[in-house]
């Protein structure tokens, strides 16, 4: 647990600072007639993710593909945001998120035979700044809200072999453990469909009962670089493609 805390600390500390520093809800409130104040949101998403680890080998080798194949296991994430600035046009959110992803495979013997289990697990931590355009729905009742988001990432990861953290020896004989944290960035462009549009009465009722001002489903595409900002000593945990994410967002 102490090791986990040490790995998570670099991302958790600024995230906690960020949420604590967010302005009081009253300052960021913006609402249409009859709606509850909006002060934040919770977003749940799923993505098809595959780290671009093999890219550093430029075709000479492909350790990720060799072990885990070419599939894209699902990445589950949440993002909790507080509204910093709300206007009739849109809302600026600052959020903290986390997720879970794991790829499973089988170890490989010198003769090519497959055997013992091996895995790579990633806990992606996110501090994100996003802007959501509420104007289309609030003004014209067009049920779409485009948004953009940029984020700082800390991918905490473990590589396991045979159910334990993998360990190798480097050229100087020192132990190299298969666990760590890799920093990076991401930029996202997406669009959300406002579900309130289809049953405004039910949506208002839910707002009165639960404080959930708006419910949206979304689809977005993310470009990310998770390689300690280009460090030559880091692998690339970002996807080598525009990664789609889909999910549900509650604005409250």
């Amino acid at each position: 647990m102490r090791r986990l805390a040490r790995l998570l600390a670099p991302a958790l500390v600024p995230a906690a600072l960020a949420l604590a520093a967010a302005p009081a809800p009253a300052a960021a409130q913006f609402m249409s007639m009859g709606e509850s104040p909006r002060w934040g949101s919770l977003q749940l998403s799923v993505s098809a993710y595959r780290p671009d680890i093999d890219s550093e080998f430029n075709g000479r080798a492909a350790p990720y593909t060799t072990i885990f194949g070419t599939g894209r296991p699902l990445l589950f994430q949440f993002l909790f945001s507080r509204s910093l600035w709300g206007t009739e046009v849109g809302t600026l959110d600052l959020g903290f998120g986390a997720g879970y992803w794991q790829a499973y495979g089988n170890g490989i013997a010198p003769n090519g035979a497959r055997g013992d289990s091996t895995s790579l697990m990633v806990i992606p931590l996110t501090v994100a700044l996003g802007y959501r355009l509420d104007y289309l729905y609030d003004t014209w009742h067009v049920p779409f809200e485009p948004y953009v988001r940029v984020a700082l990432l800390d991918y905490v990861w473990w590589a396991n072999t045979g159910g334990q953290v993998a360990t190798t020896l480097n050229a100087s004989g020192a132990e190299v453990r298969g666990q760590g944290g890799t920093f990076g960035w991401s930029a996202t462009l997406g669009i959300a469909l406002v579900l309130d549009f289809f049953d405004p009465t039910l949506a208002r009722q839910m707002d009165q009962d639960t404080g959930i001002n708006r419910t949206l489903i979304f689809l977005d595409f993310t470009k990310a670089g998770v390689d300690d900002f280009g460090s030559p000593k880091s692998w690339q945990l970002g996807p080598g493609y525009y990664m789609w994410s889909a999910g549900l967002q509650f604005v409250f």
Binding site: I53, P63, G107, N160, W235
Partner: peptide, 16 residues
């Protein structure tokens, strides 16, 4: 058998 991390290191991966 070797797992993913061992394969990555054996292939000359830079991350330690």
């Amino acid at each position: 058998f070797v797992g993913f991390w061992e394969t990555y290191q054996a292939d000359g991966g830079v991350d330690q």
